[in-house]
Design a protein around this nucleic acid. Sequence first.
DNA 1: GCCATGACTTATT
DNA 2: TAATAAGCCATGG
Length: 116
Amino acid sequence: MMSSMPKHYIKIWETVLSIPTGKVASYSQVADLAGLPRRARLVSKALKSAPQEMQLPWHRVIRANGTIAFAIGSASQRTQIDRLQEEGVIVVKNRICMKQFQWQPDLAEMLWALKF
DNA sequence: GCCATGACTTATT
DNA sequence: TAATAAGCCATGG
């Protein structure tokens, strides 16, 4: 039970919270920044089990190829698109231009995330 | 422990 | 550009 909310999730949530408004990051990118390489799928689990009260900006996490993970036409997909567009992120045919909107943290931000 | 499943990736056609 | 396959790893039955 408590094991369903391991310490890894906390690190993942912190990383997602550090994605700036108007920018996006891929599941694998979040995993890497959280110190969990090759755990992209764990990121999706962490997002799903995040408490509502946290108001995690989960909509800023998308696939590495720029597409939204939810099924086309699903409520979640529409919510994600709406929230992104409210932040100025352009979404066309379920896809975001990574060259333009992918978060590229500088060294200082990455070191902060590590929390030595 | 084996097997199926997933808000995933990467490589290959 | 798009579809397939194979790899990946935590979870739950």
